[in-house]
């Protein structure tokens, strides 16, 4: 319960570290770009040192066995090594890009089948309209802005996001645990993301 309380605090309030998340992000992003462009082993070793211990801890925390966690970790870092050229710092932060790979590896493993995903190489894929100069200045999904936006969420909305993304529970499991109807869980999620979107827009 103590740990849960920690994650219930506004995400902004956890920054007693020597390096700010932004500085760390900058280094990770630069290393990922360098790896993609030149295949630099040094860059990969730095990414590995930064991400591997946290990824392992994250994989282990929700009951994934030790050997399964190692397999997911290995496959994730292998994909980072091989696909770094696909990373686009305009579209996501470096840790989000790596985390998304890890989540997909884990989901695919649990389902024993790849989760369907849009493929940008697909001729039917419709790319986003070219961005205007103004939009280019700040990425819509800027993690610092999103972190700030999340700090205004009421506890009952933040709690459901934590249960979904940290505890990795389904909406049905959340409804059961909180003793509220499924519709309430869904409407809190809609309210929460509506608020995050509005806050991020305000700050840009």
């Amino acid at each position: 319960m103590l740990r849960e309380f920690h994650y219930m605090t506004p995400p902004e309030g956890i920054s007693g570290k020597t390096e700010t998340p932004q500085e760390k992000q900058g280094g990770l992003s630069a290393d990922l770009c360098e790896l993609g462009a030149t295949g630099s082993r040094d860059a990969f070793a730095r990414i590995f040192a930064e991400m591997a211990p946290r990824l392992r801890a994250f994989m282990l925390k929700n009951g994934l066995g030790a050997s399964a966690a190692e397999e997911v970790l290995q496959e994730t870092l292998l994909r980072v090594w091989r696909k770094a050229h696909l990373f686009d710092p305009e579209k996501s932060s470096a840790s989000t890009w790596i985390h998304t790979i890890a989540r997909n590896v884990k989901i695919d493993r649990l389902r024993k089948e790849a989760r369907p995903e849009p493929d940008p190489e697909d001729p039917s894929f419709i790319p986003a309209a070219p961005e205007t100069g103004e939009e280019n200045m700040a990425r819509k999904q800027d993690s610092a802005l999103i972190r700030k936006a999340m700090s205004v969420l009421p506890p009952e909305q933040l709690r459901i996001i934590t249960m979904s993304f940290y505890e990795e529970k389904s909406h049905g499991e959340i409804a059961e645990e909180l003793g509220v109807p499924l519709g309430t869980v869904k409407s809190r999620i809609r309210l929460a993301f509506g608020k995050i979107r509005a806050e991020v827009e305000k700050m840009q």
Partner: peptide, 20 residues
């Protein structure tokens, strides 16, 4: 875009996971 935003939110929880 919404998916990208949610992925950023999800990854905040990874950033806050302490290594073993």
């Amino acid at each position: 875009d919404s998916v990208a935003m949610m992925e950023e939110v999800a990854s905040l929880y990874l950033e806050e996971t302490e290594p073993l």
